[in-house]
Simulated assay, not measured.
Amino acid sequence: MLPIRSHLAAALAVAGVLVAGPAFAQASSCGDAQKFLSERQNLIQEINKLSGGGKKKAIDPRAACGIFTKLVANGNTGLKWLESNKTWCQVPDQFAEGFEADHKRAVEMKGKACAAAAKVAEMEKQAKKAQQQGGGLLGGGGLTGSYTMPKGAL
């Protein structure tokens, strides 16, 4: 997640350039970048919260899938904006390349998170079905029989 943070910092710096740049006075569309960049920052903060803020914590793939889906949609909006306004709004090439690389990583992470979420849902469905059929927690007929404690000193 660290590379996303560094590119996000660069994105916000560029957003400041976009707001202060001379092209902003000429076109209101340059200010549109601030909208998707601030939304992107919020989504990245949500992802960081899921991961425990740097602590090793198991991430719920279903929640991650939802957030990464929003992040990818935001990236698509950003790429369209860059394609239309990069030259007019004087967006540096380094920012555009970094944004594209971040977007590709987000698409990959979305695919992994959503695949894991689908797998979790399938496993829950199988467990629920086994439980309804009277099976044990691990499937099958459950534990049966008895276990006797050994006699004498342990």
Rank of each mutant, 00 (worst) to 15 (best):
I59S: 11
I59Q: 02
D60H: 04
D60M: 04
D60A: 07
D60T: 03
P61C: 03
P61V: 08
R62P: 07
R62K: 12
R62L: 04
R62Q: 04
R62N: 13
A63T: 15
A63Q: 10
A63R: 15
A63N: 04
A64R: 05
A64P: 06
A64H: 05
A64N: 02
C65K: 02
C65R: 04
C65T: 07
G66L: 05
G66A: 11
I67G: 00
F68P: 10
F68I: 02
T69F: 12
T69Q: 12
T69R: 08
K70N: 09
K70R: 15
K70H: 13
K70I: 01
K70L: 10
L71K: 08
V72E: 06
A73M: 11
A73K: 07
N74D: 01
N74S: 09
G75S: 01
G75N: 12
N76E: 14
N76F: 07
N76S: 12
T77E: 11
T77L: 14
T77F: 08
T77S: 14
T77R: 02
G78N: 04
L79I: 08
L79R: 10
L79T: 11
L79W: 05
L79C: 09
K80T: 15
W81T: 05
W81V: 03
W81Y: 10
W81P: 07
W81S: 02
L82K: 00
E83D: 15
E83M: 01
E83L: 12
E83H: 11
S84N: 11
N85E: 13
K86H: 03
K86F: 13
K86C: 12
K86T: 11
K86E: 07
T87I: 05
W88Q: 15
W88M: 15
W88G: 14
W88D: 14
C89T: 13
C89K: 09
C89L: 01
Q90G: 06
Q90S: 14
V91T: 11
V91C: 02
P92R: 00
P92M: 00
P92L: 06
P92N: 07
P92S: 12
P92V: 02
P92I: 00
D93L: 08
D93S: 07
D93Y: 06
Q94W: 11
Q94Y: 07
Q94A: 14
Q94C: 12
Q94F: 10
F95Y: 12
A96N: 03
A96H: 00
E97Y: 15
E97L: 06
F99L: 04
F99P: 01
